[in-house]
Design a protein around this nucleic acid. Sequence first.
DNA 1: TTGTAAGCGTTATCAC
DNA 2: GTGATAACGCTTACAA
Lengths: 326, 326
Amino acid sequence: MASIIEVARKANVGIATVSRVINNSGYVKKETREKVEQVIKEVGYVPNEIARSMTLQKNHIVAFILPNSTHLFFGELLYFVEQELFNYGYKLMVCNSSMQKEKDIAYIDLLKKNRVDAIILLTNNDVESYLDKNLPILSFDRKFDGIPYVTSDNYHGGELAAQYLIKKGCKKIMFIGDDAQGLHTVVKTEVSNRRLGFFDELKKQNIDDVINVEYPLGNYIYIPEYVHEVINSHPEVDGIFCISDAVAAEVILKLEKNGRRVPEDVKVIGFDGGRSFINLGKRITSIGQSPKLIAEAIMATILKFIDKKKAESVIIPIYLQEGDTA
Amino acid sequence: MASIIEVARKANVGIATVSRVINNSGYVKKETREKVEQVIKEVGYVPNEIARSMTLQKNHIVAFILPNSTHLFFGELLYFVEQELFNYGYKLMVCNSSMQKEKDIAYIDLLKKNRVDAIILLTNNDVESYLDKNLPILSFDRKFDGIPYVTSDNYHGGELAAQYLIKKGCKKIMFIGDDAQGLHTVVKTEVSNRRLGFFDELKKQNIDDVINVEYPLGNYIYIPEYVHEVINSHPEVDGIFCISDAVAAEVILKLEKNGRRVPEDVKVIGFDGGRSFINLGKRITSIGQSPKLIAEAIMATILKFIDKKKAESVIIPIYLQEGDTA
DNA sequence: TTGTAAGCGTTATCAC
DNA sequence: GTGATAACGCTTACAA
């Protein structure tokens, strides 16, 4: 494949001139430029980004490490992140960890070697010790020491969920989630604030007797069997807040299988929003996160990294998304 | 950041020796190796992949250009492709074209500059003239001149759909799809074989009077309003094959809104399978494609590119996935 | 076993 | 305006 040297030779100019032409930098006489451009076309020259990255110490690649791009919300976030990056001339490398800590780590190592311009990290694993503080890493939904993060306003989301269930007349309330604030898992995630906001708001409204069902993090979708048993053993419950729409969907399915109508008998509200509306059944009432706003905040953080400015953590507003289940 | 030279100096060896150590290549005396490894740890040296790519003319990056990673089937395919690549030591760059031809082209250009080791192309746009035949490009579901492709056995899928509807007793049958074989769109896709196999099989079973509803490709999800009108104007139809599960979902929703029960009054069968099962309503009966098998075939093709062997096109088997709608 | 040096394809500095 | 040339960090003959 033709290199800049070949172009320079055929155009009877120095390589610096060719470089100036392709980058539109510095002064080049009009005729020289035209001559060079013609040769470029003739030999089908395409600049080599790898060599460019080498000199510039910058490859315009950003990596996104996430548990699973097929998870509806994560996948949507991925899409918007890619759009933002494209608009700013960056490419996206996708790294599915499949929830495995070893894969998180393998990817972090890999990306260090690849000198990517930034890493977006979305994980529930305790990888703090692998995170170089002066590497351009930002995290979504997780706090790691010295690493800026972007997250939705999970606490307020919890409050909204509580308010909504109460407004709808629920008396006996339950929370179901795979998040454990250190009880079962090591890492404390921002997601646990959903539960905190929810419980705080209930207390504020004088509801203390709330059933809290937590279980160790799995694959974000399926719920351990015993959780369903717990639900069944509480027929008095008439309002449930689930940590995600995926969990809400599972819960609703089981409730209806056991003859309890949603929302007539039990109201269920989830978290995430967006695409949970695209399905053949009920639309899940949910606390919505905006993947677009989140992607924009992530991009802004990355640009700060690139400008060598200090990046602050950001909290993105959430909203209630009314559906058919609460 | 420390380079190989710094390590060499501090370990009192040549850079070639350091290179041998980090790549486990060639002979290195045990003590020398240990000394070098110790220095590497001390200075926190991480090999620079960019420089490595430069020398090796190979960057271990594969790019996947696709319309939209949030599309359920595409997203799932993306996930499996990434897994395959990871297992073989390759990284994945994701390029969402959002169905826009200009973005397809922009990405193809970008990837030429980046000298990626392979490009997986999934598009409905006519980008043939931008496809360098000696570039390592493979396509999914589309035939481009001189480019190997991987696709599901769409034709047989169509046949299966026909057989199933007939078996279920359907008499008046309709096909709905956004694929146009040149009627509306420029590119002939492999997907059009779904329709061909379907019609051929019906004819074989002496059903000739089939209603064919086609419309220009949109975003894979929403259907033009007039299609719904066509459906309504044919109350005699009792079996519908839709080009995808996304389309089937739309169709089922509208049918039920208009008081026609699925599958009691009308049986509907889609195409894609897999995740359409995860929702709060009926599971769509579908002709399933296996993203895992497809990803494996794609990986095999990429390995052929890398080995400079000739890559043949591959057709992946499909299967019937019974659900609640037919 | 190990070290030297060429080469990979750019950009940028500095003369001219 | 333009052209040498160093530098980026690595791999790999080739020599020792």
